[in-house]
Design a protein around this nucleic acid. Structure first.
Lengths: 115, 115
DNA sequence: ATTTATACCTAGTGTTATAAGGTATTTTGT
DNA sequence: ACAAAATACCTTATAACACTAGGTATAAAT
């Protein structure tokens, strides 16, 4: 899979929730938006995003609705639920704690840098 | 597994390499030291650490040597190889890039906080 | 007319943390 | 002296998740 792929485990859901919180979005759009915002760093695969969205919907953190464009195209727009908002803020907190713990290990206390 | 477990995927190896770089250490000691330094945050399981050490040794990032204590106890001390040092610094760089990319997504540019 | 982009999907594979067991010795508490 | 906890190593099976590699269908671009 590669090292970045391993780092993503546990972060993908938070990234998706954070974007969907801003405004309703659909799968393909999320892939493009993640790439755009990260200045090309994230290049999520469809095999990652779509199953992730299905998991999040199954867990009731997001709800999807099919919407038909004038040209006939169909998109599934996802919105954040109340439960999703809570999950996002909880995950953000955990992420902060986690990053702090990593820094405590890799940067011994006497020469800690500001985070 | 739980959310923290997922976050750890991709970071465990770096944590181990970072500690072993400081001085040779053995498995059980690494578990305790990770818990101590993180002020109790990390509670790695043996089923995580020992297989991880075996992987790192297989990849020649660390080398282990059995050492017998005066009381007969045996410990397997691991040291960082040149290849391990390079892998560690590479992973540190990737981690920085990764954290930066995450922040670009979750903190829109106009109201970015210092990192 | 062909290619590329948009937009959705899934089955199978590889990696990794963890649960849950095991062995053996030493130290500590009673 | 005896029991319990700590030290120190190990492995098998399970669950979660990113990704590969396919698939379908339509719209836009060349």
């Amino acid at each position: 899979m590669g090292y970045i792929g391993e780092l993503l485990k546990g972060s993908t859901d938070s990234l998706l929730l954070a974007l969907i919180k801003e405004k309703p979005m659909y799968g393909y759009q999320l892939i493009k938006e993640l790439e755009r915002r990260s200045k090309g760093y994230f290049k999520f695969k469809e095999g990652t995003i779509y199953p992730a969205l299905h998991r999040l919907e199954e867990d009731r953190l997001i709800v999807g609705t099919w919407e038909k464009l004038s040209n006939g195209q169909e998109r599934r727009y996802y919105r954040l639920t109340r439960k999703g908002e809570e999950a996002l803020s909880s995950r953000m907190n955990i992420w902060q704690e986690f990053a702090k713990a990593v820094n405590l290990v890799v940067e011994p206390p006497q020469d800690r840098k500001r985070v």
